[in-house]
Write a protein that binds this DNA or RNA. Structure first.
Lengths: 143, 143
DNA sequence: TTATTTGCAAAGGCTTTGCCTCGGA
DNA sequence: TCCGAGGCAAAGCCTTTGCAAATAA
């Protein structure tokens, strides 16, 4: 059965090849934020007839069709996730690399308000928080 | 006379060479957020005996000494500014490329609060807004 | 069929690095 | 003097692209 992303692509009029179907599926099934190499790895496991160049081309295609979002966690390579309607952000656990998603209405309101005060209409934004798990007890003893 | 950045570097115990002095000066005098190539261009104008490799090495050195901050506006290359004590963010005018700096106490509070709710201590964050100048009048006629 | 897409390998953009010479303290 | 810094060019990493063969509609 077609993945959610594949159906979206078809709806957008994208020509669907075997490769694009596999990549759609990989992205639909992902619960993390894979980079291109990781998408290629997962796609290859399903169908080895897929080159990294095609993955790059497909990610760009999907991004331009707004069916996926490109993320940048500051490590020099692009990460991806299925496009979503909610405005959400990411908190990166710098110890484990884990990415926690969150939404925050006040944040949405605030950034609109900031842009507005500066005389701008907002067309995009990026917010990432980098943190470490909070210690249970207040121990300032640890360096 | 030494630039503000040069004095800071000395205070941090960095060995100051002619190249580093020139780069310090360029960064201290900058009111924008130059990338490495631009820093190299400006430095070369002062003293041509400066290679791009040295600029890269120096930017990294300065960054690690926390006398400059590295910025990422999502265009695939690093931008820099003198380190500052205030937490400020950037609004990028996507029409002109102009970068507007802003500070916002509510934002500072909010991100701490979000991290805290998720069980994290914040050690860093990034926020950039991308916008276009707001039209004076509400005209929805323009595409 | 026929315009697209893919694979492969080469190239591109930004950044780092090896190596040897130069230079600051 | 002596260890670190700089210059140059090569290499590295992620990404894009030219071209010929394969393929979707």
């Amino acid at each position: 059965m077609p993945s959610r992303l594949e159906e979206l692509c078809v709806k957008k009029g994208l020509k669907m090849t075997d490769q694009r179907r596999v990549i759609s599926r990989v992205l639909s099934e992902a619960t993390d934020h894979p980079d291109v190499e990781e998408v290629h790895r997962r796609a290859s496991a399903i169908d080895p007839r897929i080159s990294i160049a095609t993955v790059y081309r497909t990610m760009r295609l999907f991004e331009e069709a707004h069916v996926i979002d490109r993320l940048d966690f500051g490590d020099g390579r692009a990460r991806y996730e299925e496009a979503r309607t909610d405005h959400h952000h990411h908190l990166i656990d710098v110890d484990s690399g884990e990415v926690i998603e969150f939404t925050n209405d006040e944040m949405e309101r605030l950034k609109e308000s900031i842009a507005s005060e500066l005389g701008y209409d907002l067309i995009g934004h990026r917010l990432e928080l980098y943190g470490v798990p909070r210690k249970r007890r207040a121990d300032k003893s640890e360096s």
